[in-house]
């Protein structure tokens, strides 16, 4: 994941020359960076984050000529991400970047449907796990990917994924039963 700016720039220049292999590698890396960027700012909604990542990738693709080869690449990418994020706030009419749990109850006006509550709860609970376990459970249970797909994504064996997921679920159950994650709606 830690590809340097210089390496990304090399990939981008090759991509602009028509090298689709380099382009695939570049977009694969940018996808992770964008995901991290939006997750840090939105926290909640996995769907929104995925949408924004895809929107940004499409914009990077269709507007790739606006990158100036004399300039660094990542500021250009993040400027696009930032524009898409602001556009997202504008569309959803939300400007606050405070996580909802930090707000007093009466300010939580957002989406009170049971499904949204459930998804929000799942995400909140998942947030309490270590990053790798969280991602595994998210892939398996929220995105409902197969064990094989999850393993491929994480670069782990299927057995390791099963064991890690099982442990993660155990941790969550213990925490729930013990009332460790106290958050009333």
């Amino acid at each position: 994941m830690e590809t340097s700016e210089a390496e990304l720039k090399v990939l981008m220049i090759a991509s602009l020359g028509g090298d689709s292999g380099a382009y695939r590698a570049l977009l694969g890396d940018l996808r992770l960076r964008l995901g991290a960027y939006f997750r840090r700012r939105l926290r909640r909604d996995a769907d929104d984050i995925e949408d924004l990542v895809q929107d940004s990738l499409i914009a990077i693709h269709t507007r790739r000529e606006t990158w100036d080869r004399d300039q660094a690449l990542t500021p250009w990418v993040y400027a696009i991400a930032r524009y898409k994020l602001i556009d997202h706030y504008r569309r959803t009419g939300r400007r606050v970047m405070v996580p909802l749990d930090d707000l007093p109850g009466e300010l939580r006006t957002e989406d009170h449907s049971a499904a949204a509550d459930a998804r929000r709860d799942v995400t909140t609970v998942l947030d309490s796990l270590p990053e790798r376990t969280r991602r595994l459970l998210h892939d398996l249970k929220v995105q409902e990917l197969s064990v094989a797909e999850t393993a491929a994504r994480a670069g782990m064996s299927e057995g390791a994924v099963k064991v890690a997921a099982h442990r993660g679920l155990r941790t969550l159950m213990d925490r729930f039963a013990g009332g460790g994650a106290s958050h009333d709606g």
Binding site: G17, Y23, R24, H61
Partner: peptide, 21 residues
């Protein structure tokens, strides 16, 4: 999903000139 999207974008790739803008 995103993997498919990246795939589609990569297949749609055409060279771009430096002075395109």
């Amino acid at each position: 999903m995103t993997d498919d999207l990246i795939d589609r974008l990569a297949r749609d790739l055409k060279p771009v000139r430096p002075e395109a803008v």
